[in-house]
Structure formats: C-alpha cells, structure tokens
Design a protein around this nucleic acid. Structure first.
Length: 134
RNA sequence: ACAGUCGGACGGUCUGUCGCCGUUGCCGAAAGGCAAAGGAGGAAAGUCCGGGCAGCAUAGAGCACUCCACUUCCUAACAGAAAGCUGCCUGCGAAGGUAGAGUAACGCAGAAGAAAAAAACCGCCCGCAAGGGUAAGGGUGAGAAGGUGGGGUAAGAGCCCACCGGCCGUGCAGUGAUGUACGGGCCGUGUGUCUUGGAGGCUGCAAGUUCACGUAAACCGGCGCUUGAGGGUUGCUCGCCCAAGCCGGAGGGUAGAACGCUUUAGCAAUGUGGUGACACCUUGCAUAGAUGAAUGACAGACACCCUACAAGGGGUACAGAACCCGGCUUACAGGCCGACUGUCAAA
C-alpha cells in the first residue's frame, strides 16, 4: 500500500521554474481546475512532479477561503497522485506543474477529488503527445 | 418575572482514518525512517495612530510646513486610557451622544436688512415748521445693542430696581477645569488668517548581518576631477561636511541558506497604595515561528440554537499569524458573569 503524502519537497518553489511554467507551459483543464506544466531536466534533487497550487485573490477575497480551497486541492492531489508518479517514473520523466483554481465559489472535497483524477490523466496524455511531436 | 443600560470574560467538545510544519530523542554512511510532546485570533482583519528594535544621518541659523489643544492624571509612547469640569441634545430612568486654548489686529458672512457697532427706513414723542429725541413695536438674519417683570418718561432707554445669563474683582471650597457668596461696572455673533502653549530627523524585518552561487571592473552617450560633477545635512535658503566619480541607455548575473525570530513595556494570582486607568512586592506559568508560505481533510457522536404535537429537518458567526508590543476602527451565530435602572407581583 502506497502512502498518500505531499511533503514540502514536492512543492514547486523556485521562482525561475515558476516563470518558465507560466511562460512556456502546456495547459490542461478539468473545471474547476486547470494545470499548466512543463518537463523538467533530469537532476538528482528534483522530485518526479513538483506542484504549485494557486488560488487567486481575485476569486476569493478572504484568506480563510483561499486556504480552504488550497487545502482541499492539496488533499485531492495527495490521495490521487500515484498513477501520475508511477507512469512518469516508468517513462523516466520529471515535470513541474501549476494547478490553478478557476471558480469563484467553493466546491466539495469529493467533487474536487473527482476532477483532480481527470486532470492528472489529462496531463499524462498531453505530455506523451508533446513528446512524440518534439 | 419582563424590558433595558453599562462593564467583563467566552466563542464549540470528543473519537477514528489519512496528512502538513518545525522541535527533541533514537536508528541510519547518507537519503531518510520511527517515536514523543506541541502547532492561529479576539479581533490574527483594516494598516489609522504610538512605541520598541534595526540601519543611515547627526556644527548651526533663518523661514516655512504638519500634527495636538477644557482640567488633573496614567503610560515606553500616543490622535489612546482613567477620573472629573462646562454648554447643548436624547431618554421616565440606569445612561448615552456631542462641542470645548485665546480673540489684540485684519478679512469674510454683506447680492438679506433702514442699520452688522458710537445704527433711525416705517413707527412713537416734542415742535407751526425746520429740526430734534427715541431701540418699546415692524420686517431681514445664525446673530439687532443682554432676557423677563416693574418703576420711570413727552415718548423711550441698565436711566433706576428685582431676578436670571455673561464679564471683571475679592473671599471661600477644590491639585485643577470649575463651583459658590459678595461687590462692581453695564455687556453683539460665527468663521478664517492670526496669537499662545506643546510635539515632530529619514527609512521600515523586502530593516539589517553573515555565508554560498554567479556575472560584464566589458559597451554606447552626457557631465566632472580643487575654476568641484555629484552626494549628505529636515521641505526651502544660507552655512557646513564628504568628494572622484556621477547620471542615462542597451544588456548580463543572482533571486539559495543561516541569523534577525520569538522570554517579553509577557500573562495570572495574593497583598499594598490609588475613586480609577495604573504602579509596586512576592509567587507561579510560558506551549506557532512558516517563507510560492505549515497549523488540515473526511467520517461519526455529543452539546447549543431555530422550527415542530411528535418523528424529523435546518443551522453553529466574524474570520487565518508573517519582526514584536500598546491602542483605535470595523466584522461577529450564540450563550455566560457582575453592577445598576424602569414596570409589575409578593413579603
């Protein structure tokens, strides 16, 4: 049984990489979630998938609401990330992803989790096509 | 009991599963793993004041500028708090709201009104008239020569008297704002400039310190090197200090880690002083420290509230630390405690 974790190491924190993701990333949408990702060069320290969760101030004015959404997304990711990680590892790839919440209202944890599964599947199909093209 | 005023404190609890953050201990060569005890607020919010702390600056003079303003008092400090004072307003009341340095000079209100300070348009009185006297009445205005009543007079008027309001003086009470008694003279309003007293260096933890990585001390244009560019000095002027580089363009590199970073104007209790804010003594307690930013997600039970005869159904606020404190302001489901007020009932 795999453990459902999401430690700090798997967070995307480097300013440089974040800028690259937003500038050159490929986007996948599974409403109310949208992912933008790029492939990362193979290095020792980098995790298989570095994740950034973004909930804009525009959509949720209060910090309490933003925190709640972030926590639900984080929860959804850590419980459904294994398919993504395993597939990437077998392909020998590493990616950096920004997950953006694109709704103005709250959604239940169960709903977000369902959409997250779809989103991660979407990332896998998109990344393989990108690779074939290049 | 009901309705209300003021003040204070609180603002979910437990169990299970899966997670996050730093700390400590153990294991491991390392990566990491395991365990333990911890991990948002009364407003953490708005960022509106005031400090601490940090860096920079720190001969001085003049002129500006900004803020504060009843009194006493508290404090590290404040535009804050406490206890009071005076006027006005609201409430039956407990209580609440609001304003509060001064007015010598000048301006404005002044396109109203006859008149805005040594006033005569109408009216009233004297007079044949010319003219004179008059602020009771009219209308204007926020304000019309203190107000009301009486005496007085040709008619009137602080002209005289009583009471009241204001001003000045003296006594008494109070630390004081002020109150009060007596006496005096006979007394216009608002606002701005202004006057008086007090305060104000600049920048904010992205401060600042250390380490690591890396580049371009290159290129183009302008000004300057003791005949001084530029910088600092409070906004300006003077003065003073530093001074060999400075400004602009295009372009390049880094954006990692540690300290700062949580033990302090800290919180609580007893006692003492004080009406009180608060101060002092003693004792006890102390448990976030992240940095693309942790402190949670889900399920169940309980508690509370609303609704309902019941079964049941619905709801549980406002809101998330970012260097740290003291305030202010704003948001807030729900109940709790204390003091007091009004009404009703009983004794």
């Amino acid at each position: 049984m795999q453990r459902n974790t999401f430690p700090l190491k798997e967070h995307l924190k480097s300013k440089k990489v974040i800028e690259q993701v937003y500038a050159n990333g490929v986007s996948v949408t599974s409403y109310p979630l949208r992912a933008i990702f790029i492939e990362q060069p193979q290095t020792e320290q980098e995790p298989t998938a570095a994740i950034l969760i973004n909930v804009s101030k525009k959509r949720f004015r209060h910090a309490v609401d933003r925190n709640l959404v972030k926590r639900r997304i984080r929860e959804a990711y850590r419980t459904s990330k294994h398919t993504l990680i395993d597939t990437l590892q077998s392909q020998g790839k590493k990616i950096a992803v920004a997950i953006i919440y694109i709704d103005n209202k709250h959604n239940s944890t169960a709903f977000i989790k369902k959409k997250m599964t779809k989103l991660l599947e979407g990332i896998l199909t998109k990344s393989s096509t990108v690779c074939e093209n290049s």
